[in-house]
Write a protein that binds this DNA or RNA. Structure first.
Lengths: 142, 142
DNA sequence: TCAATAGTTTAGAATAATTATAATGTAGTA
DNA sequence: TACTACATTATAATTATTCTAAACTATTGA
């Protein structure tokens, strides 16, 4: 359970109490090889699959937002009725597969020369995101 | 009413019947100097402001989707619970002002040389969008 | 011109994602 | 241990959007 004590420290350091629920969610989110792209629904499903216990949907929402506000999760702009989150909080971009509704990380070197040369006066850039929507070749886009 | 007959032609050409409601919506959307960024709600408000008559919300939704499918409107990926649309259908990018929740067109030359060097195999790129989120300088991002 | 028909509009119901509420539970601290 | 502030929970409320089915209307062809 060394992972677990890591999570406890992480939570404490950011002023969040390490509750049973938050630790379970940490486990599902952060104890994995690859980065995880998910909607709240995906996460809730993942939790009930991996763990025998139920966590209230409200808690899942609260926790995801708390983690996002602390910078442990990134929210991704996808044109959809749902919110997507990403455990990869580094500066990176995404493909969005319109056939499967899945987000896929875009390697740094895939996007060449992205540079913003002008900004709105009086404002500060808080993020720059590139979203590349893809679909199967034979299917006409509407 | 030369604008009006233009709209009638435009609709007919794309196989949409030029109904009273669609013409009113055309007027609100396309009879303006600058491009218009809007949510369905904005549009509905705009319609009732400019025009004395009510158009059912369902019709506004139907029409916006029809126009989008015909390529007269673009849907923009903004991280939000709402969908944003744009009357500027050329290839371009956006700023999103997090203070006011407004989309702002990004001039072509602001983004330099954006190039996608690799793609998901078996898929076709249907769009590439850059979204630059901005906020007032003194306000800490959450 | 008129009737048939296929496409449109509409109010309201249904759905889905998310947020609010308020009661109960629990971690941290004195 | 007991107090207090923070968390969790089920459920209700809210919001954006889509569905439904009945009424309406533009188009077409006789």
């Amino acid at each position: 359970m060394s992972k677990n004590s890591e999570f406890i420290d992480k939570l404490r350091l950011s002023g969040l109490r390490p509750t049973k629920q938050r630790l379970k969610i940490c486990e599902v989110l952060f104890d994995r090889e690859k980065t995880f792209h998910f909607t709240i629904n995906d996460l809730a499903k993942n939790i009930s699959d991996k763990i025998g216990e139920k966590i209230s949907l409200a808690t899942v929402y609260n926790t995801v937002h708390a983690f996002k506000n602390k910078g442990y999760l990134k929210e991704i702009s996808v044109n959809s009725h749902k919110s997507y989150f990403d455990t990869n909080i580094t500066n990176h971009h995404h493909f969005f597969d319109q056939d499967t509704n899945q987000l896929i990380d875009c390697d740094e070197d895939v996007i060449e020369n992205l540079k913003v040369k002008k900004n709105i006066t009086g404002k500060k850039i808080s993020s720059i995101e590139v979203l590349i929507k893809v679909a199967t070749d034979n299917q006409n886009q509407k």
